[in-house]
């Protein structure tokens, strides 16, 4: 065995192993398993969308077809079609791609910014902490949706702008959590040990502190993912989401809700789709928390 296998491998190589193991632990939480199952289902749907979807998402085939029935040319529509004749099932399937692309992307971006801010505020303290915390307080004092509307109304609505808006609005919240964890962890003796051997602040923040904050952060990330999905849905619903015609669950609900009186299927199915995915993340977060509390 060499030094390399002794240190970095045991730190990072085993990390993968341990991550797998903790997913194994998930088996002990039924709630967490259901959540993971729902998420996995949508991930598979998103990946294989071109194979699963019976029709192209934007093809106008036959309007106002009810679920479980056939159109004028004998096409079968499991969930029916909307008022301009697009297959609802196909649009839901393709729409999962949009959600599962932008939600994790936005969450990840928010985490990168939030963690950087939180580490700086919590570990370096002093002026940096004061300034970052004040900025965070101000951003957080906006009602979230007001902030999104203001940002999107100003910079326009597009996928990337949604990611930017979510990052901007969520990073301070993540910063608060990270800062709190860092304030606790920085007083540990192993951090003092690292300091007494003259480690750089980078090393201490990234090696000694951050990895040990991962537990609560993973749970928070799951919850936040659920919330980001809601946000993307709400923006779509308010007409501030991705520009049409590409399918987006929130947008689908907005487009069809005036038809809801006569054709509830147009709105109800996308509602179920988005709710099930959010439920998946919330259940997973709950399961993970339950497991982490038990150890």
């Amino acid at each position: 065995m060499t030094d390399r296998s002794l240190i970095p491998a045991s730190t990072y190589g085993n990390a993968l192993l341990r991550a797998l193991k903790s997913f194994g632990l998930l088996r002990e939480s039924i709630v967490g398993m259901i959540g993971a199952g729902l998420i996995l289902f949508w991930i598979i749907v998103a990946i294989f969308a071109p194979l699963i979807a019976p029709y192209p998402p934007n093809a106008t085939i036959a309007p106002f077809v009810m679920p479980w029935s056939t159109g004028p040319d004998g096409e079968f529509f499991l969930l029916g079609t909307d008022m301009i004749g697009r297959d609802i099932l196909s649009r839901i399937i393709w729409g999962s791609r949009t959600v599962l692309l932008y939600a994790p992307l936005a969450t990840l971006a928010a985490y990168v910014v939030g963690i950087a801010m939180g580490l700086a505020a919590g570990y370096l303290r002093g002026r940096a902490d004061d300034i970052l915390s004040r900025i965070g307080d101000i951003i957080l004092s906006f009602p979230v949706l007001v902030l999104y509307i203001l940002i999107i109304a100003t910079i326009g609505s597009s996928g990337i702008n949604i990611v930017i808006a979510i990052t901007f609005a969520s990073a301070p919240g993540i910063m608060r959590i990270v800062r709190g964890l860092v304030l606790d962890l920085r007083n540990r003796d192993y951090v003092a040990a690292a300091q007494t051997r003259g480690e750089s602040s980078w090393h201490i923040m990234l090696v000694e502190i951050l990895p040990n904050a991962r537990g609560p952060l993973i749970v928070d990330a799951c919850l936040r993912l659920g919330y980001v999905i809601i946000t993307i849905g709400v923006l779509g619903f308010l007409g501030l989401g991705l520009p049409p015609p590409d399918p987006d669950w929130g947008g689908m609900i907005n487009e069809t809700r005036s038809m809801a009186l006569a054709f509830p299927h147009m709105t109800v199915f996308p509602c179920i789709a988005i709710s099930s995915l959010i439920l998946g993340f919330n259940l997973l977060a709950d399961g993970l928390r339950e497991i982490s509390l038990r150890d």
């Binding site: 002794l6 240190i7 730190t11 003796d189 192993y190 003092a192 690292a194 007494t196 051997r197 090696v207």
Partner: peptide
């Protein structure tokens, strides 16, 4: 730094939970 080192009080706190025993010493 090397000539002046410290042993800490709390055994549960003295080692970084995400680093192996060998990793601590090797570092």
């Amino acid at each position: 730094l090397g000539s002046l080192q410290m042993v800490f009080q709390n055994p549960n706190d003295t080692l970084n939970p995400s680093i192996s025993v060998g990793g601590h010493i090797a570092r």
